[in-house]
Amino acid sequence: MGIKNYEDMNALELDAIKEIGSIGTGNAATAISQVLRKKTKMSLPDVYILGYNEAIEMIGTPEEIVAAVLVKMSGEINGIMLFILKMDFINAVLESVLSKEISEYMDLTEMEKSALEEIGNIIISSYVNALSGLTGVGIGLSIPSIAVNMLGGILSVPMAEFGYETDKLMMINGKFIVDNKVLDSNLLMMPDISSLNYLMHKLGVD
């Protein structure tokens, strides 16, 4: 196995991930524009391999409340995908889908949470499709699950899940531009290490 940790990836391998990220973000922008019925553009995403504290700093602060949607991958690729939504993204979704806006995370109803869960699921699936499309690998997805809570607690989930394999998180960051509003997109794409090696093999960059 060539890669033992996310940070072991060389420039070529990171480029491959970036390519998956770009195609995934493109797919996601198309999906968002269909769901929200609004013109959606995207920026080219960046891939980051970060420690826990660095990842928190990049997104916000440990006690900051965010919404996050988690989907587990299984089959030929095992791992998790975690999409983080902040207030501006949440309101863009709620305005379009349910014609309402919230100002506090506490105000989110079950119905609204499930709308966000579905959007998160659609975005994550866009990336997973890019992943399986480029590699020809079959990936099964779990039912999505949403949490609205402290950022630090949410990011501890992938940290603990992979704690015996790696100390790093792999994050794809980009921006969606919906109706001239710029919304940050933070996606943690975390295949386990043997899946990552398998992906690289399939992509022919190992």
């Binding site: 587990k72 779990s142 949410i154 989930v157 603990a160």
Partner: peptide
């Protein structure tokens, strides 16, 4: 020791 995500089904995360 919380379980941040209520994962459904057998393919959910273990309760670390």
């Amino acid at each position: 020791g919380a379980k941040m995500f209520e994962t459904k089904g057998s393919q959910g995360l273990g309760n670390i």
